[in-house]
Every structure is written in structure tokens, then in C-alpha cells.
């Protein structure tokens, strides 16, 4: 039997199954918390930091990623305070500076209200969200991909830098990668990156009802939890 706990997210008391994460519950109940590395059915590692929320305990609030935060009885979560918005804005800005060549990440930047990127574009074509790595290990049990190196040299690589015979060739890593959908105007050349921001009209909907999921198209590119089951 499923045990339920009551959590308070943005003022709404929600009955949530024990063991689920705050992000899952919020998506289920139509509360929009932007996220990138979360894929339904895979373990959460809190890599992209986009899904940060404030967890209020004893009058103090702690900022933490909601995908790795499990629901507890009487929890109080705030997902759309000024502090969170400011931090999330900055994180989205850093993500889009790291990898502007992705519609999914450009959309997230728009969703988080990024108007200008203050950081130099690095165009490294990977934000280390680990979607491919986790899908390979957990869904297919192939372990044909993983993180290699450390610090600024950390990157996704195949074992011994070559394709191994145990790679099943399912291409699921490519399907899940947020980099596979290029911006509408095609891939950007190095040195000519820009913030797309063309879908700002979508933002109007999310601004009118700030913390509820307006089913904006901005989440489609990276299979936002809302869209996960819709496509297939």
C-alpha cells in the first residue's frame, strides 16, 4: 500500500506518495519548476541545478534541488520566491553560455527570464546533465557511457575512448540529449553565439500564472515531465 504524506508547495497542501521527490510531485500537480536533467524513471542527480526550491524549516529556508529532495510529512516548499528566481535566472544564464547551440537550453533561458547573457559563450556543446549516462546505465544496463576526468576536464566519454561491443547501439543517449535539437535558425558558428529569445511570447503565459504549469511549449525540447508521456 502506498503511504501518503502532506507537503505544502507554494501554499498548496498536496498529498504525495512517500518516496517521491518534490519535483515529481510538483510536476504532477501542475506547479512549474523548470528542470533539465530530470528524466521520469531515471535516478536524479541534481546536475543542472535548475530545479532549485526553498525548503522552509523552523522559519529558516534552505535552497536545494527539488529533484533530489524527497517528500516528508509537513514539508514547506517555496518554488517561486524572489531569491529562487534570481538564482535560477543566473543558473539558466550560465547554462546557455555553456551550450547556446540547443533549443532546449535556449528555451529554458527564456523560461527563466534571461534577457542578456553576461558570461562569454563557451559553446562546449555539453552541459554535463548526465541524461545519456543515466539512461545507458539504468534503462539499458549497458554502461557504455560515463563521466571521465574531473574538474573542468570532466566530460562524457565511452570506455577507453572507443565504442565497446557491449554498447547496444540503441541511440537512446542521443534521443535524450538536450543538444540534439538545434536552435530554429540552425547551429551557431563559434564566436557568433547569441541568446535566441524569440519565444518570449510564451513567457507571457508563465508570467500571468507564475508558479503553475501553463503547458508552455518551452518544455517540449527537453521532454519536460509534462511532455514526457505526450509525445510517445
Amino acid at each position: 500500500m502506498l503511504h501518503y504524506v502532506t507537503v505544502n508547495i507554494d501554499g498548496a497542501d498536496i498529498k504525495a506518495p512517500k518516496g517521491s521527490s518534490v519535483l515529481e510531485v510538483a510536476i504532477e500537480y501542475g506547479i512549474c519548476i523548470p528542470h533539465l536533467c530530470h528524466v521520469p524513471g531515471l535516478s536524479d542527480i541534481g546536475a543542472c541545478r535548475l530545479c532549485i526550491v526553498e525548503h522552509v524549516t523552523n522559519g529558516r529556508s534552505q535552497v536545494t534541488t527539488s529533484c533530489t529532495l524527497k517528500v516528508q510529512e509537513g514539508m514547506v516548499i517555496r518554488s517561486n520566491t524572489d531569491r529562487i528566481k534570481r538564482l535560477r535566472h543566473n543558473i539558466a544564464e550560465l547554462l546557455v553560455a555553456e551550450a547556446p547551440n540547443s533549443r532546449a537550453i535556449q528555451d529554458i533561458a527564456v523560461r527563466c527570464g534571461v534577457k542578456k547573457v553576461r558570461y562569454p559563450f563557451r559553446n562546449s556543446n555539453c552541459v554535463l546533465c548526465g541524461r545519456c549516462v543515466r539512461a545507458c546505465a539504468e534503462l539499458w544496463h549497458a554502461n557504455a557511457l560515463g563521466f571521465v576526468g574531473r574538474g573542468k576536464d570532466r566530460h562524457v566519454e565511452r570506455p577507453l575512448n572507443m565504442r565497446q561491443e557491449f554498447c547496444k547501439g540503441c541511440d537512446y543517449c542521443i534521443q535524450l540529449c538536450p543538444m540534439t535539437i538545434t536552435p530554429c535558425d540552425g547551429p551557431m558558428k563559434p564566436g557568433e553565439e547569441y541568446l535566441c529569445g524569440k519565444c518570449e511570447s510564451q513567457l507571457m503565459i508563465t508570467e500571468e500564472v507564475p508558479d503553475s504549469c501553463a503547458w508552455c511549449r518551452l518544455g517540449e525540447g527537453f521532454n519536460c515531465g509534462r511532455y514526457a508521456g505526450v509525445k510517445s
Partner: peptide
């Protein structure tokens, strides 16, 4: 050596990527 990594992976029951990840870290 690469062969050693493959052998370690087989004998210890650790995925090859895990051996490579630790060795490169």
C-alpha cells in the same frame, strides 16, 4: 594498461566505464 582495465572489470564485476572513470579521475 587497457588490457589490465578490461581484466579488472571482468574479475571484479565492475563495469568497464567505472574502472576507466576512476582511473581517469
Amino acid at each position: 594498461p587497457e588490457e589490465a582495465m578490461r581484466e579488472i572489470s571482468k574479475t571484479l564485476g565492475v563495469p568497464l566505464i567505472e574502472v576507466y572513470r576512476v582511473a581517469s579521475f
